[in-house]
């Protein structure tokens, strides 16, 4: 069964993973401490295919990439937020964490049934449809490559500037 983990506005990177657990780069080890202090149930119970729903400015604060890596390691299917902090957003795209920005998404609860389509950007909550913000073409190229590192293995960075 898919769990829906609901968080509020301005969830910061210290809440996603406290600084003292950043003494590793291992995805699974970091995942064990995801939301460790603000939502201990997450690290214990989150399972493959779960969905995180948050308010505005998700991932504000530190530049630590450990935060999106910890979430990625928890194997959630999608992170859906009304908006993201800038550095977290770039980090998530770069490492291939599946995120969607849905500005008008409100009043979601953990009991809701949520369906997500990354192809169409459509998010359905209890049958009601929402649309994720459309990504610029060069961001889509990074995502389609599986992250910026994979993109740069086969392309020059200058290709991002004039992405079709």
């Amino acid at each position: 069964m898919t769990n829906v983990w609901v968080f509020g506005d301005d969830v910061n990177t210290d809440e996603i993973i406290p600084g003292r657990y950043n003494v590793t780069t291992d995805e699974q080890e970091l995942a064990q401490h995801a939301f460790y202090e603000v939502c201990p149930e997450f690290s214990e119970q989150a399972q493959t295919g779960d969905i995180i729903v948050a308010g505005k400015n998700f991932g504000c604060g530190s530049s630590r990439e450990h935060a999106p890596i910890a979430i990625k390691g928890s194997k959630v299917k999608a992170v859906i937020a009304r908006s993201y902090a800038r550095i977290f957003y770039r980090n998530a795209i770069n490492i291939g964490l599946p995120i969607l920005e849905v500005p008008d998404l409100i009043n979601v609860t953990s009991d809701d049934i949520i369906e997500v389509s990354f192809d169409t950007g459509e998010v359905t909550v209890n049958g009601r449809k929402y649309h994720a913000s459309r990504l610029p073409p060069f961001i889509r190229r990074i995502i389609e490559s599986g992250g910026i590192v994979e993109f740069l293995r086969n392309h020059d960075i200058s290709e991002l500037e004039n992405a079709p």
């Binding site: 530190s62 530049s63 999106p68 550095i87 980090n91 910026i148 590192v149 740069l152 200058s158």
Partner: peptide
Amino acid sequence: DSHSCTHGAVGAFSTGMGSTDVAVAYATGK
């Protein structure tokens, strides 16, 4: 580091990014 914006005190454009973004800058200078 997110507080890389500090360097703007001397009239530089300086911004914080995550490790992978900065690795790209390490590798390409861009």
